[in-house]
Computed example of a mutant assay.
Amino acid sequence: MTKYQRVVLKLSGEALAGEAGYGIDANVLQSVASQIKEVIELGTEVAVVVGGGNIWRGMAGSSQGMDRATADYMGMLATVMNSLALQDSLESNDVETRVQTSIEMRQVAEPYIRRKAIRHLEKKRVVLFSAGTGNPYFSTDTTAALRAAEIEADVILMAKNKVDGVYDADPSVDANAKKYDELSYFDVLKDGLGVMDSTASSLCMDNDIPLLVFSLMEQGNIKRAVLGEDLGTIVRGNRS
């Protein structure tokens, strides 16, 4: 029996780049697709939000003098590219998938329609939410929080490619960094832990959406997360 019946899986664009750090690694795509298939076979409904940092980061473009809105729209298009790549990989694993975009591009994907997305999920299709919220100045973390609230997801699964949870310091720099098993969103915001941006954290806190942060790099972790096994760090509205 799974712990969660409907989940939003949040993947960073960098995770899809693998060791190269840029672009899309076909082996990583296949690994993610096979793990999502395992979860679908358990009967869990899966929506996915993918970042675009492996192709373009809006903040980076803005810091180089580009108009912030233009840079962010370019980042949204990068998330569409990642979603289409993941869709192709999922369907090669016989997993029915739909890409929905917040910016209308009908030749490429469906426009985001909440009720239609929920219907796809009920039919056990994976829904990939791309192009962010459709607005500049909002991250894909905020997209994940917003879509999770809209589709009434049980949890956001934040799969990381470099860490296996939330730490009080960067574990790649500080050998004494302490990993948290459980946190509240208030702690995240107060201590500036950088799990999600403050807009996304506040949205999750206000709507009581739990967040599980765990490592994507270990095969089978997405399934373990859905089954409720002990891994990563759970972030809740209030620490229990």
Rank of each mutant, 00 (worst) to 15 (best):
R114T: 11
N161F: 04
S89N: 02
N82Y: 10
R114L: 09
A85C: 11
F138C: 11
T79I: 09
F138Y: 15
V95S: 11
A169Y: 00
D164M: 03
E122I: 01
A131M: 13
R106V: 13
D94R: 01
P171A: 05
Y180N: 06
N82A: 02
F186P: 02
N135S: 09
D88I: 00
A148C: 12
S130L: 05
F138G: 11
V80N: 00
I156P: 14
G134M: 09
E96S: 13
K116L: 11
A144S: 14
V173A: 13
A145S: 14
A131Q: 03
M81K: 06
V163C: 08
A169I: 00
R119N: 14
E152L: 03
D141Q: 02
M158R: 03
V163T: 14
D141S: 04
V126G: 09
V126P: 15
D187N: 12
H120N: 14
K123T: 08
A144F: 12
H120A: 11
R98W: 07
I113D: 12
D154E: 13
Q107E: 13
Q87L: 00
D168N: 15
T97R: 03
T101E: 02
S172Q: 13
D170C: 00
N135T: 00
K178D: 01
A109M: 06
I103Y: 06
A169S: 15
E150N: 04
S83A: 14
G132E: 11
L90K: 09
N82M: 07
P136Q: 01
D174A: 00
R98M: 07
L183C: 05
D141P: 14
D164N: 11
E104N: 10
S130Y: 03
T142L: 13
V80F: 07
E96H: 08
K116I: 08
L90G: 08
A149Q: 13
E104A: 06
T140G: 10
L128G: 07
